Simulated assay, not measured.
Amino acid sequence: MSTLFTKIIRGEVPAYKVAEDSQFLAFLDIRPNAKGHTLCIPKKEVNKIWDMEAEAYQELMRFSRKVALALERSVKCKRVGMAIVGLEVPHVHIHLIPLNDMSGMDFSNHVKMEEDEFTALAKKIHNNMAL
């Protein structure tokens, strides 16, 4: 059975995409810890990050770094934090979260965003990927 993320990759479920290449996809988390909270995923469905092939893991980190740098240029924050939890969806995903304090890493807190905010922010991050 396909994961939610595989359905996003296939276009069966909508997402606020910020970056994509042949192997990876980045999109805004719809239950963000902070505005700009982004998920980076491999297009190949793998349950646990440590089950990824070493080269694919390294490429995912490179892709995530590019997205994090674009995120820093797009959202005012002290830094972009990274978390790999993997319990919510059985598909490898890296959380990139704009942080101003440690409470941004508390996954029980979520900020409310409207659809137009998601759309505008996804476009802004996407546009900052080229820099």
Score class of each variant (00 low, 15 high):
127 N>R: 12
16 Y>S: 02
1 M>I: 12
27 F>T: 09
130 A>M: 13
59 E>W: 03
131 L>Q: 13
123 K>P: 09
118 F>Y: 14
12 E>L: 12
67 V>M: 07
89 V>M: 05
50 W>P: 00
129 M>A: 07
4 L>T: 15
4 L>F: 14
117 E>T: 00
86 G>I: 08
75 V>D: 02
31 R>Y: 10
127 N>L: 12
49 I>G: 01
62 R>Y: 11
60 L>A: 08
71 L>W: 06
8 I>H: 06
44 K>R: 14
66 K>L: 12
72 E>Q: 13
35 K>T: 07
108 S>H: 14
5 F>D: 04
4 L>Q: 12
97 I>W: 08
98 P>E: 03
2 S>Y: 06
70 A>H: 03
47 N>F: 11
104 G>P: 06
115 E>T: 12
52 M>C: 11
101 D>H: 11
3 T>W: 00
84 I>F: 10
81 G>L: 10
129 M>P: 00
71 L>C: 04
106 D>F: 08
20 E>C: 09
69 L>P: 03
32 P>R: 02
70 A>E: 03
15 A>H: 01
54 A>N: 12
94 I>H: 07
55 E>P: 03
31 R>I: 08
75 V>N: 04
65 R>E: 12
4 L>P: 02
28 L>F: 08
94 I>A: 05
119 T>S: 12
112 K>V: 13
6 T>W: 01
118 F>T: 00
13 V>D: 09
56 A>Q: 11
12 E>G: 12
15 A>W: 04
73 R>H: 11
115 E>K: 12
24 F>A: 03
61 M>Y: 10
97 I>K: 00
92 V>N: 02
29 D>W: 00
40 C>E: 07
28 L>W: 07
77 C>D: 06
1 M>S: 15
32 P>N: 08
110 H>I: 08
40 C>Y: 09
46 V>N: 05
68 A>S: 15
94 I>K: 00
78 K>S: 15
33 N>S: 14
91 H>C: 01
7 K>P: 04
31 R>Q: 12
120 A>Q: 10
122 A>V: 06
78 K>V: 10
42 P>G: 08
104 G>H: 13
53 E>Y: 07
16 Y>L: 05
123 K>E: 06
79 R>G: 10
18 V>E: 05
107 F>D: 01
18 V>H: 02
2 S>T: 14
42 P>S: 10
48 K>R: 15
26 A>F: 07
31 R>L: 08
22 S>N: 15
99 L>Y: 04
73 R>C: 10
38 T>P: 03
110 H>V: 11
83 A>V: 14
54 A>C: 00
66 K>I: 09
126 H>D: 11
2 S>R: 12
98 P>H: 01
73 R>S: 14
94 I>Y: 00
60 L>P: 06
23 Q>H: 12
19 A>V: 06
15 A>V: 06
81 G>N: 09
